[in-house]
Design a protein around this nucleic acid. Structure first.
Lengths: 168, 168
DNA sequence: GCCGCACTACTCGGATATTTGTTGTCCGAGTCTCTTCGG
DNA sequence: CCGAAGAGACTCGGACAACAAATATCCGAGTAGTGCGGC
């Protein structure tokens, strides 16, 4: 019952990308440097978002990732499911099949009341997450921390022309 | 984001124990045989419920487990937290601490809006599970499958005198 | 000066190790029951 | 016949091993920019 670290990274990355100019991609290396994260692993997580249709990727110089659709069309649930997989966290293994009186041809995930209870709770959880969008979170942050957006954009795209790492 | 198998086993076991006569313990071996589960591993899960104060254990012959309090005082959430641990599934690792402009002495689990969103969704999930009790599920099953309780009790405690035939 | 071409640098993407957590197994400490022996 | 002591068997409890998944890393395929040579 432990959610992968990639969810947190992916959500922050999506919010940041909702601030960068549309059409300009942000490389995973730059995002990773922003948060001091392992670059290759963050890249792996963003790949999952691409497979889910949340991000679009561009190869080569000036390449990277960008949102595949408008931020208000990306829910938090979309991101969570892209990283963690679409399966329910509670998996009913059909424990009743092997119990006395159990039948093989019954879908206990539907009839078992315990399974129903867990599923119902999970539906409320998902509904809650599906109500929140990347755009909503971004505007809330802008309202609460007015400097965050500008500072983030400056750090992510403003450093575009820094090809001189030879500062020694 | 995958819940342990022990949660399902523990919930079924608790419902079954709510049907057995109070004062009589049910051994993990018997419960495991009922569901065709690995006995030692089920025992391990029930130990976690004992540590959480949900079950009480009795050693020796005629020993086993029994509910430590009334079934209507045991919520589904209690069982889930006992098995999976009390921590939130979404762990905010304070990603913003290492970001530009981040401060070490800020509790980002509180201020970070992404963390707040995830936490809020999880609270609704927990609230939903805390509303359901073992007794509630048990009575629902009794209403829906009138034979279940009797069959379960017969299988779990009725086979008590199997080594010594004291059949009436 | 302008165009075309090869070269380089940079990116994603997937294949590959390493660490952590879940699943499963085993044996020991404790205790209740049954048997047996003495009163 | 009755009671108590001892052997036996059954239980939980935690320590140990096997397996799967999350975490972290590395290298190859492809592409856009760049510099150079020719026109």
């Amino acid at each position: 019952m432990k959610m992968g670290q990639g969810v947190e990274w992916a959500l922050h990355s999506c919010v940041n990308m909702s601030w960068t100019p549309v059409g300009e991609a942000v490389s995973s290396a730059r995002l990773a440097a922003f948060y001091k994260l392992p670059a290759a692993y963050l890249n792996k997580q963003l790949q999952a978002l691409v497979r889910a249709g949340i991000l679009a990727s561009v190869s080569g110089p000036r390449g990277g990732f960008q949102l595949a659709r408008r931020p208000d069309q990306i829910s938090v649930l979309d991101v969570v499911l892209a990283i963690e997989g679409k399966d329910d966290s509670f998996r009913c293994e059909g424990i009743l099949k092997d119990a006395p009186g159990g039948a093989m041809d019954v879908d206990y995930a539907r009839t078992c009341l315990i399974s129903q209870t867990m599923r119902h709770a999970e539906v409320t959880w998902r509904t809650e997450l599906s109500r929140q969008t990347i755009a909503g979170i971004a505007t809330s942050i802008e309202r609460r921390f007015p400097d965050a957006k500008e500072a983030t954009v400056r750090e992510l795209v403003g450093a575009r022309g820094q090809n001189q790492p030879r500062l020694a």
